[in-house]
Amino acid sequence: MTTANLALLPGWLDPSNLITAMGSWAVAGILLIIFCECGILLGFFLPGDTLLFIAGLFVATGALDINLVLFIALLAVAAFVGNMVGYAIGYRVGPPVFSRPNAKLLKHEYIEKSEAFFAKYGKVTVVLARFVPVVRTVATVMAGASRMDAKIYTLYSAIGGVIWVGVVTTAGYFLGQIDFIKNNVDLIVVAAVVIVVAFSAVPAAMHWMSKRRGKPAVGE
């Protein structure tokens, strides 16, 4: 089976090339990559969505000899453990790093803003961040650095991990042989997240607009 290089990825990061190169260690290698991409900042450049999608395709064609349900379960565990490691790194290292005096990039105010953000939107953020490349790597560290409630983070990290790997890997299993979808996985996933966020914001926007219309004009 031959597959075209995926858009935006160099050849050595192409999921098809990675899976093929790993041979009999492919499943273990995929789990390791997902773990690193979900929890270690240096893993932000690794393919996540595309790797899951192409892995699903490989399972469908028999190139990866593993049961789909078992594979998704293992991937969910790898994604969850990666997030918990990233949270722990942020929890332990974040405050000292962001508290350095005269810091130009890693300022303490970023932690304060993150704390307020995660306090208000943390549950949704932890789940949706799974579907956005780079963000899913950074968000988990920032959740730890901003001291997001560990129990809440653990629960929604698990939920987000199961939904993410389940949806993307299953999509690869059933839709991976469609060239347009296979070659534009990242763009499709990000577009889907944008649509979900936009629809979820509609009620709040309508409420805000109704309140604005209900305010009396200045001087009345």
Score class of each variant (00 low, 15 high):
residue 64 L to P: 11
residue 64 L to Y: 03
residue 66 I to F: 02
residue 72 I to H: 00
residue 75 L to C: 13
residue 75 L to E: 07
residue 82 G to W: 03
residue 85 V to N: 03
residue 85 V to I: 15
residue 86 G to H: 00
residue 87 Y to C: 09
residue 87 Y to V: 11
residue 91 Y to K: 11
residue 91 Y to S: 06
residue 92 R to L: 05
residue 93 V to H: 05
residue 93 V to I: 13
residue 96 P to H: 01
residue 96 P to C: 07
residue 97 V to C: 07
residue 100 R to C: 07
residue 102 N to R: 05
residue 104 K to I: 15
residue 105 L to G: 04
residue 108 H to Q: 11
residue 108 H to P: 12
residue 109 E to S: 12
residue 114 S to F: 04
residue 114 S to L: 10
residue 117 F to A: 01
residue 126 V to F: 05
residue 129 A to M: 03
residue 131 F to P: 07
residue 131 F to I: 14
residue 132 V to H: 05
residue 134 V to E: 01
residue 138 V to H: 01
residue 140 T to E: 00
residue 143 A to K: 01
residue 144 G to C: 13
residue 144 G to K: 02
residue 144 G to I: 12
residue 146 S to T: 08
residue 147 R to V: 11
residue 151 K to I: 14
residue 152 I to S: 10
residue 152 I to E: 07
residue 157 S to M: 10
residue 158 A to R: 02
residue 158 A to Y: 02
residue 159 I to T: 02
residue 160 G to C: 09
residue 161 G to F: 06
residue 161 G to T: 10
residue 161 G to V: 09
residue 164 W to K: 02
residue 166 G to M: 14
residue 166 G to F: 15
residue 166 G to Q: 09
residue 166 G to H: 07
residue 167 V to Y: 05
residue 175 L to H: 05
residue 177 Q to G: 15
residue 182 K to H: 12
residue 188 I to A: 11
residue 188 I to D: 05
residue 192 A to R: 15
residue 192 A to E: 10
residue 193 V to H: 01
residue 198 A to V: 15
residue 199 F to N: 13
residue 199 F to L: 15
residue 199 F to A: 15
residue 203 P to R: 13
residue 207 H to Y: 06
